Amino acid sequence: RLRTTILPEQLEILYRWYMQDSNPTRKMLDCISEEVGLKKRVVQVWFQNTRARERK
Rank of each mutant, 00 (worst) to 15 (best):
N49D: 14
D30S: 12
M19K: 13
C31H: 15
T50S: 07
M28A: 13
E9V: 00
T25C: 06
R26C: 15
K39L: 02
T25K: 10
Y15D: 15
V43M: 01
E12A: 07
T50L: 03
A52Y: 07
L11A: 14
G37K: 08
Y15K: 14
Y18V: 00
V36E: 05
P8R: 08
I32L: 01
R55D: 12
R16L: 07
R51W: 01
E9A: 05
M19A: 14
M19I: 05
Q20P: 01
A52E: 15
R51Y: 03
K39C: 11
Q44W: 11
G37C: 05
D21M: 01
K56L: 11
W46F: 02
V42C: 06
E34N: 09
M28F: 03
L29T: 01
I32R: 01
R55H: 13
E34L: 06
Q20T: 08
E9L: 04
G37A: 02
S33A: 13
K27A: 15
C31E: 15
L29A: 01
S22T: 10
E9M: 01
E9F: 04
D21V: 06
P8G: 08
R16M: 11
T25I: 05
V43T: 05
Q10I: 01
I6P: 09
K39Q: 15
W17K: 13
V45H: 10
Y15P: 04
L2E: 14
N49A: 08
D21W: 04
V45C: 11
Q10V: 02
R53I: 06
D21E: 06
W17Q: 09
K27Y: 08
K56W: 04
R1H: 11
Q20E: 09
Y18L: 01
M28W: 02
I13V: 12
L14R: 02
N49F: 05
V45M: 10
T25A: 05
S33H: 08
R51N: 10
M19D: 12
D30Y: 06
P8Y: 04
N49R: 09
I32W: 02
P8A: 12
L11I: 09
R53D: 12
D30P: 06
D30M: 08
D30I: 12
I32H: 00
R51S: 05
F47K: 04
R41M: 10
L29N: 00
E34H: 07
R41W: 11
M28K: 14
K40M: 08
D21H: 06
T50D: 04
R16Q: 08
F47P: 03
M28S: 12
Q44M: 11
K27N: 11
R41P: 14
L7N: 14
S22L: 04
R41C: 10
V45R: 09
V43E: 01
V45Q: 12
N23V: 07
T50R: 11
C31G: 12
D21L: 06
S22P: 15
V42T: 12
N49E: 15
K27T: 12
P8D: 13
R26V: 14
I6L: 09
Q10E: 07
E35S: 04
L38I: 08
N23P: 00
S33Y: 00
L29V: 09
R3S: 04
L14F: 00
L7E: 14
Q10M: 07
G37Q: 06
P24T: 03
K56H: 13
Q44K: 10
M28V: 12
R51L: 05
K27C: 10
L38W: 07
I6A: 05
E35G: 01
L2V: 13
R26L: 14
V42L: 06
K39F: 01
G37N: 11
P8F: 07
I32E: 01
D21Y: 04
E35I: 00
M19R: 12
K40A: 11
V36F: 09
L11Q: 14
I32N: 02
R41I: 08
E34Q: 13
R16V: 07
R53Q: 14
S33D: 00
L29G: 03
S22I: 09
W17E: 10
E54K: 05
K39A: 11
D30A: 13
A52R: 13
V42W: 05
V45G: 11
W46L: 01
L38S: 04
Q44P: 02
I32P: 02
T5I: 07
Q10W: 04
C31T: 15
S22Y: 05
C31S: 14
L11F: 08
K56P: 07
L38R: 03
V36I: 05
R55P: 10
R26S: 15
D21K: 09
L2M: 15
M19Y: 14
D30G: 11
L29D: 00
T25L: 00
N49C: 05
T25S: 12
M28I: 11
M19V: 11
Q44T: 12
A52S: 11
V45N: 08
S22G: 08
L38H: 10
Y15R: 14
Y18W: 04
F47A: 00
T50H: 13
E34G: 06
L7Q: 13
W17Y: 15
P8E: 11
W46C: 03
K27S: 11
E9N: 07
K39W: 01
Q10A: 01
W17G: 04
I32C: 03
Y18D: 04
M19C: 09
E12G: 01
L11N: 15
P8S: 11
L29C: 05
Y18I: 00
D21Q: 00
R26M: 15
R53M: 12
R53V: 10
D30F: 10
R16E: 08
R55F: 10
K40H: 13
L38T: 01
R53G: 10
I6V: 09
P24F: 03
R53Y: 08
L2A: 10
I32G: 01
R55I: 11
R53E: 15
F47R: 02
L38C: 06
K39Y: 00
W46K: 03
Q20V: 10
R55M: 15
R1V: 02
Q20L: 12
R26A: 15
L38Y: 01
L11S: 12
Q44N: 06
Q20Y: 08
F47W: 01
V42M: 07
E9T: 01
K40S: 14
L11D: 08
T4F: 04
E34K: 11
E35Q: 10
Y15H: 10
R53N: 14
Y18K: 04
I6E: 05
R3G: 10
L7G: 14
E12T: 11
W46T: 02
Q44I: 09
E54L: 05
P8W: 06
D21S: 05
V42Y: 07
Q10G: 02
K56F: 00
V42Q: 05
L7W: 02
P8L: 14
T25D: 14
R55N: 13
D30K: 12
Y15N: 14
E34S: 13
P24H: 05
E35P: 05
S22K: 13
Q20W: 06
A52L: 12
V45T: 09
S33M: 03
T25R: 05
K39G: 13
E34M: 06
P8H: 09
V42D: 15
K40P: 14
K40V: 14
C31Y: 10
V36G: 04
K39I: 00
Q44E: 15
K56E: 08
S33P: 00
E34I: 01
N49Y: 04
Q48G: 06
R53T: 12
R26Q: 15
R51V: 02
L7M: 11
D21R: 04
I6G: 03
Q20G: 04
V43N: 00
V43H: 00
V43P: 02
T50C: 08
Q44D: 15
R41E: 15
